[in-house]
Amino acid sequence: MRYVLAMLASLLALPAQAQDRALLQLDWIPTGEHAAYFAGVQRGTWRELGIDLSLTRGFGSGDTINKLANGAAQFGVADIGALMVARARQNVPVTSVMQVYTHSPHSMFVLRASNITNFRQLEGRRISITPGNSHRLYFPEVMRRAGGNADSITWVNMDASAMAAMLISRRVDAAPFFAIHHYYQNKAAQRAGQEIVALPFVETGFAIYSTGLVATDALIQQNPDLVRRFVQGAQRSFEWARDNQAEACRLHVTRNPEVAQDDCEGSLRATMTYVFNDHQRATGFGRWESERLAFTWRNVAESQQIDPATLDPARFITTNFLP
Rank of each mutant, 00 (worst) to 15 (best):
V4D: 15
L5G: 09
P15W: 13
D20M: 03
D20C: 00
L24G: 08
L26E: 14
G32V: 10
A35P: 05
A35N: 08
A36S: 14
F38A: 11
G40N: 11
Q42G: 12
I51W: 04
L55Y: 06
R57H: 06
G58W: 04
F59N: 10
G60C: 05
G71K: 14
A72H: 08
A73K: 01
Q74D: 12
V77D: 06
V85F: 00
R87T: 11
Q90T: 04
N91W: 00
T95S: 04
Q99S: 12
S104D: 15
P105Y: 03
H106K: 06
F109V: 10
V110A: 03
V110L: 04
A113P: 03
S114K: 02
N115F: 06
I116W: 01
T117A: 06
Q121V: 06
L122Q: 07
G148F: 02
S152N: 01
I153C: 02
D159I: 11
D159S: 14
A164P: 04
A165Y: 06
M166E: 15
S169H: 14
D173W: 10
A174S: 05
I180P: 02
H181P: 02
R191Q: 13
Q194V: 01
I196S: 01
A198Y: 09
E203W: 13
E203Q: 14
A207P: 08
T211N: 07
V214M: 07
D225W: 00
D225Y: 00
R229L: 02
V231Q: 09
E239K: 02
N244I: 15
A246K: 01
L251W: 07
D263M: 02
D263E: 11
D263L: 02
G266A: 12
L268K: 08
R269T: 10
A282R: 13
T283H: 01
G284V: 09
G286Y: 06
R292F: 07
A294Y: 02
F295L: 05
R298Q: 11
P313L: 04
R315Q: 13
F316N: 12
T318W: 00
T319R: 09
N320W: 05
